[in-house]
Amino acid sequence: MVNALLIILCCQFTGEMIVHFSGVAIPSSVVGMVILLVGLIIKGSVPDDLDKTTSEFIKYIGLLFVPAGAGVSLYLNLIAEQWLVILAASFTATIATLILTAYAFKLLEKKRGT
């Protein structure tokens, strides 16, 4: 548990340093994720300890969205004012993405399979 946390925090820390000193516009936690992914690919397997800790972490990841999500209390008026735009944009883009992504996958998968 402690070792796994140490690995995760070091990846995040390195990500933060890379973003800070290079000025690249990528969230530092995403850079940390890439570092861990590359590490796992090089190692070729997931250590047991890391596997357990991360799956426990991810199980409760929903809870971690609450503080940021609760900030919506500052935007309730804006959402009420612009609900039609929000609904139109969300709905159209969501349906289009669902269809086109599945279609692209199906099309290319077939070409390879047959």
């Binding site: 946390l5 995760i8 530092s28 936690s29 994720m33 861990l36 992914l37 596997d51 972490f57």
Partner: peptide, 19 residues
């Protein structure tokens, strides 16, 4: 904020299911 802070490590942890 104590909860919010954990988002960073949790994002890094997502590398495992992806791997």
């Amino acid at each position: 904020n104590f909860i919010h802070f954990l988002l960073g490590p949790a994002t890094v942890a997502l590398a495992v299911p992806l791997y």
